[in-house]
Design a protein around this nucleic acid. Sequence first.
RNA 1: UGGGGGAUGGUCUAAUGGCAAGACAGCGGACUCUGACUCCGCUUAUCAAGGUUCGAAUCCUUGUCCCCCAGCCA
Length: 562
Amino acid sequence: MDNSDRNNDKNVDFIRQIIAEDIKNGKHSAPVTRFPPEPNGFLHIGHAKSICLNFGIAEENNACCHLRFDDTNPSKEEAAYVESIKKDVQWLGYEWGDNLFFASDYFDRLYDYAVELIRQDKAYVCDLSAEEIREYRGTLTETGKESPYRNRAIEENIALFHEMKEGKFETGSHVLRAKIDMASPNLNMRDPVIYRILKVDHHRTGSKWCIYPMYDYTHCLSDAIEGITHSLCTLEFEDHRPLYDWFLDTLKTPCHPRQIEFARLNLTYTVMSKRKILQLVTGCHVTGWNDPRMLTISGLRRRGYTPASIRNFCSEIGIGKKESWIDMGVLENSVRNDLNDTAPRVMGVLDPLKVIITNYPPEESEEIEAQNHPQKPEMGTRRIPFSREIYIERSDFMEDPPKKFFRLGPGREVRLRYAYFITCVSVIKDKDTGVVREIHCTYDPTTYGGNAPDGRKVKGTIHWVSAAHALSCEVRLYDRLFAVENPDADKEVDFKEHLNTDSLTVLTNCLVEPSLRQTAAGTSLQFERQGYFCLDIEDSKPDHLVFNRTVGLRDSWAKAQG
RNA sequence: UGGGGGAUGGUCUAAUGGCAAGACAGCGGACUCUGACUCCGCUUAUCAAGGUUCGAAUCCUUGUCCCCCAGCCA
């Protein structure tokens, strides 16, 4: 085996290995997976990992992945979330075809299954209060006590359960419990609640039900009803697998899917739980679910992340059972890689410094041809106006530069990208503050296009815009939302204490080349030498352009400066 | 102190008894009309101790550390 064989991509994760094995030995002809979100919030990058896994496996096997909403708790769920989740999954590039389901579609069958459980003497109606149930459950080290209602007659249980369904009892007064084992070392097996009374309207079934099934009971049966072969979930459900199997072994279901657990995604400098993300939204620490600083799918989309970059990221980080922390830099790198290939290059100045080219005729201008992507000639060219007054980046000029500074300084010559060589001849400063107001340069007309006929070289090339032609715009720079790698690390300190107060910088005096006038919202561009930006899909208007910085270019000069 | 999991460079992933590999990060260099991209080179790892074996990250034993579980949430 040579190196090219050893290092190819045949290495697949343990879940795909299991599935390949099940197909090879004929257990299944094709896998059927599912992505089962609860419609109680927006999807985030952690869900993307699961989406890419489940839909990815289906795609690779020419099979189906179901989108199933786990909507068993109407007190937390809303139809609006359903729509946002569908949009996000589609945007990521996946399709569920006809396989759109809701756990609530199965409420009738779930009820019948529960009655069957009662008939088998495997479930009972319990009148204990929530607190009493907790006390009776025991602790991690002490076994539980059996409920006094555990040995009710089967017919009585059926009647009582029916009355629960008919709304005869108050919320919290009765539950249906599976009759398993109060002495089990696995707390999930100590007669878990499978139905509770909730006098709340459901976003799909309305007021039809006042009892709702619990997750453990609903999920395995929904999987079985849909013919799921492999039910992939995160590690915290490992302890629930015996219960998942117990329901399917006890009831006569069409099939018995296999639950496999994998580690959830953790990213540095962010929080991943829906509960905490909700707090950021409701506490107005961000502007909404789609704030570009958020790692929600909608936030990433608005920030300028591409579906491909997120898919690549998910495939890069792999699937395992070890809890791991992925460096935020890996995510950033994935979008840089994708946009480097696809984003057209343009010039934009974020912090403008005026330059007057003293030997250029005052009333004249000309057009310079520029490539839209230097490595991809097929992306074409555009024309950029040039004139006597231009703006450059303030950071591209230093009055007293160190020798390694390749940009503009008194007496120094640089190239204006695609245009001319210019040499700084004088610096105009504010009398009171000493701040540089403008600089005067001369240009060499023989260097049109950026090359000197005499063959002389300049080390630096800087970007610029023509003062008379540039479009003014707003640019929003984003930094990590949190100042520390793990905002959850200290249980004594609220994670919001670690919010990065400088996560958003709004620049209002930016200038971009006039070719951007008609750019469509959401378009990604590279501002040369700076980074990737996209036109904000919420706030940008034709007369007030707003760009989001998706991610900066790598900057070895800045890094060397410390 | 019950049960369920997990330990491979700074980070993530692979190697499924046979040369510890790749990516990210870091460092050095080349190239460059983007201090980008690209290319080249380098540093850094099998939790510990025993055992089985010609040979162990992998199998066995013992131990250590980390995570999850006591919702009528999912």
